[in-house]
Design a protein around this nucleic acid. Structure first.
Lengths: 169, 169
DNA sequence: GCAGTTGAGTTGAGCTCTCAACTACTTACC
DNA sequence: GGTAAGTAGTTGAGAGCTCAACTCAACTGC
């Protein structure tokens, strides 16, 4: 294995600031949603994505893709959400292996109830603290990272092996 | 309650890009560490912070602060790490309520073993994808968010109430 | 038309994290 | 110096997540 390329001082500072900020922020968001709406953030995301889809419905695998969730995590989560009556699952007519998750009216109502407090928290702890330039920078940085992690090659790596391959320059 | 200030289009894009990138990245980091070193990222952070401290030791509450962890989470985590022999706890001589966590040689060795693969992954999926300007921007953004979440007022809010108070402008 | 393989989704065990309750000690105040 | 309030840390129950194993359906090639 090649000699480790440790992080430089500026890189280290950036990584730690990002890590700490994100830890604090995500914890705060999860706590707010859990307390005020009785759901973790991951569940909120599922409701949001379903609410935006045609017929408020998505195949499980599409839902997993857009929420950046593993199949297993989604399967567990959807089971819980179905127990609460916030969505229901029906068989896919064109592919008998498939399941389609549909947001119920109760689920939509729960989302409408939860959204204002959540958005307020996102604003308060993130967006409203940044300049418009920083908002744009954050989008740019996020996009680059997403691109790096969703190529077929990296999806594979993510799933099974992160050994330093001849990384794309 | 005041009318909700929804996110503008650029704000929404930035928030979602950040959220998705972070979800993917943190999942990838956790998976790499779990697979190659048998520990979650939170445990790695604990080992890192102890290794940097004087005498490789910190009070539980200081360790909780620097790792941005709740007391409870840290207490559970330290108990697991102690079972593995990676650290040990001793009573604090000056405050009988206190406990001091100390990294053992085995813990230090585990960290040395884990670090290269972890740093490689951070580089590969984050740092090496960014320009030096973006690295600096990320540090700036992170610092602003941390500052907003660690003021006494917000610590309190985080802990008990995120209702839209007359937020600092 | 029938193996073998791939894809969709689920399940259960094990682990981490959260929340709330609790013990034990310390500090402040009178 | 004794009580009240605050601080340090732990604990247990409950919930969500990960990993690996599994079922069932759809392709693929012959």
């Amino acid at each position: 294995m090649a000699k480790t390329r440790w992080l430089s001082a500026p890189e280290q500072r950036a990584w730690r600031a990002y890590l700490e900020a994100t830890t604090l922020l995500f914890d705060a968001l999860d706590r707010q949603l859990q307390r005020d709406s009785g759901m973790p953030h991951a569940y909120y995301e599922i409701l949001v994505r379903l609410s935006e889809a045609d017929n408020r419905s998505l195949r499980m695998s599409e839902l997993a893709d857009v929420t950046r969730s593993s199949r297993s995590r989604l399967s567990h989560a959807v089971a819980r959400l179905e127990e609460r009556g916030w969505l229901k699952r029906v068989d896919c007519p064109t592919d008998k292996r498939g399941q389609i998750a549909t947001l119920t009216d109760a689920g939509f109502a729960a989302l409408e109830e939860a959204a204002p407090g959540h958005v307020e928290t996102v604003r308060r702890f993130l967006i409203d603290r940044l300049t418009p330039e920083q908002v744009a920078q954050l989008e740019q940085i996020g996009s680059v990272v997403i691109a790096g992690l969703e190529t077929p090659e990296c999806v594979k790596v993510r799933a099974e092996d992160a050994v330093p391959a001849p990384a794309p320059a």
